[in-house]
Amino acid sequence: MATREVLNVKGLSAGYGPLRVLHDLDLVVYSGERVGLVGLNGHGKSTLFLAIAGLTGWQRGSIRLNGHEVGGTRSQGPGRFTHRVVKLGLALMPQGDEIFTGLTVEEHLDSGAFTPRAWRERAQRKRRVLEIFPPLEKLMATAVGRLSGGERRMVSLGRGLMADASLFLVDEPSLGLAPKISKGVVDALMSVELGDAAMVIAEQNVSLLEGRVNRLIGMHAGKLKGEAAVGLAAQTVREA
């Protein structure tokens, strides 16, 4: 399989107001790979994801998603261009779920299929998501606000998987869940057929990801550590 650069981040700095969270960060993600992003609280994992989606306070540096430049210098209007980034093939499964409490699970999954192609194929996509998260089958007509934390996480992840995306950013899938459930959620994420897409999973709990992703990148104080090297990444992808 020919590997392609799904995401290419170069010299990305981002932050909120006077606070700078990311420091000149470079990251390349290739198609078909699963990348684990591990690091402690407050070291910029979520900010990296938000910066890719254009949701931070300000940012500088190049972000290329499928060859389209979505970064650049921006200092106001967080979220103003997010929908365009999403159209270019980004699916962000945010920390804290950001679910729509009043919608039913089915409507929720529909809302994830935002691009025209995904909307046309939403029935198929829903079936695929239900294969990954079987417990949602019974809950399709329930309002999301009535679900438990684990179910909500499934809905949030399922919403992300509905998208016609080439890059899935999963932020802390195990946050706030019981260990058993969080393991199940991570298992489900691992079972997703990526095809040409790529997935980046941010986690604090390294043991959940160890040995199950193509490479693990550490994040410390707004900088990447560990196996971020480009050549190495290409190699690991070939082995996988």
Partner: peptide, 15 residues
Amino acid sequence: RAMMMNPHGAAIVGI
């Protein structure tokens, strides 16, 4: 309706 429920989430979904 999604925007009624959660504007931030709506932006993330691509609305």
